[in-house]
Design a binder for these strands. Structure first.
Length: 275
DNA sequence: CATGTTACCTGGTCGC
DNA sequence: TGCGACCAGGTAACAT
């Protein structure tokens, strides 16, 4: 479900409310992708200093160590502070509860591809394994055109798959990959290194613009995504190609095509995104 | 090494 | 209505 915009919208929807809170208790439901790595009881008493994001990971900085959260394909968080409607008893797909002095944070994740991992510090082996290989942050100034150009030039992979891999730039998932390639008029199967400088520039700009707009729109809600405050996203209303198989291209009116790349669906316009 | 494939898990949808 | 096949927003681990 969640690509960078959904994760960032989720972060913003509870970061301020949980910052400064002390953990009262934590509990786990069914196993997620990895073990928590610490006894739930040992988390009690620690303070949540803040919430950061790296790629599609959320990092809860604690007074001692940090909690690394990933929403996988179907995860979402919910946070209810005092005076808000309580979240109630954990349901069949609620797999992590963090009760704090400022509210309850709950992870809901039917497919359980998500993760909650305690790491003692940033130099922890697991944290490094998960975070160190990640590419540039698309909404940071460090995501320069020149660095992006170098990243693409180093790969023969089809551009769609290179974007999905996150090795050059993080956060562009299956929906936004199709969207940014449409906007920059690049064929999804084109080898990254063969993309001309003007199109690289257009793609760089599209990534920044689309992700920023999607964050503004509250992300994309296809089925059940909502931020930690329950708000749904609206970006799906302006998707140009994703999920529009057979419908007319907004630019040339020819039908949008669906193709498979590495077991994932790619939507594109054969005419506007010529090979 | 870079690149392509598999596996993880549940639920919804579609065709028969 | 039931059942199987296939699809879904991610990504580490493995195979080639």
């Amino acid at each position: 479900m969640p690509e960078l915009p959904e994760v960032e919208v989720t972060r913003r929807s509870f970061a301020d409310r949980i910052a400064g809170a002390h953990i009262v208790s934590a509990s786990l439901g069914k196993p997620l992708r990895w073990p928590l790595g610490i006894d739930c009881a040992a988390l009690a008493g620690r303070q949540v200093l803040g919430v950061r994001r790296r790629g599609k990971y959320l990092l809860l900085d604690l007074s001692e160590g940090l909690l690394l959260l990933h929403l996988g394909m179907s995860g979402s968080l919910r946070f209810a502070g005092p005076g808000e409607a309580p979240l109630g008893a954990a349901g069949a797909h609620d797999h992590f509860d963090l009760q704090t002095t400022q509210g309850l944070l709950r992870l809901h994740d039917p497919r359980r591809f998500g993760a909650v991992v305690y790491v003692p510090g940033e130099d922890d082996a697991l944290a490094r394994k998960l975070l160190d290989h990640l590419g540039m942050e698309p909404l940071e100034d460090s995501f320069s055109l020149e660095a992006f150009r170098r990243g693409l030039a180093a790969s023969r992979s089809p551009i769609k798959q290179l974007l999905l891999s996150g090795s050059v730039v993080v956060g562009v998932g299956n929906i936004y990959a199709s969207e940014v390639l449409f906007l920059s008029r690049i064929h999804p199967a084109r080898p990254a290194r063969d993309i001309g400088p003007r199109k690289v520039r257009a793609l760089h700009e599209a990534i920044r613009a689309v992700l920023a707009l999607a964050v503004e729109q509250g992300g994309t809600t296809l089925r059940d995504f909502s931020a930690a405050n329950g708000m749904e996203g609206h970006f799906q209303l302006q998707a140009r190609v994703y999920g529009r198989d057979g419908q007319p291209c907004t630019h040339c009116s020819r039908p949008i095509r669906l193709m498979r790349q590495g077991q994932r669906s790619t939507y594109y316009c054969v005419h506007c995104q010529a090979a």
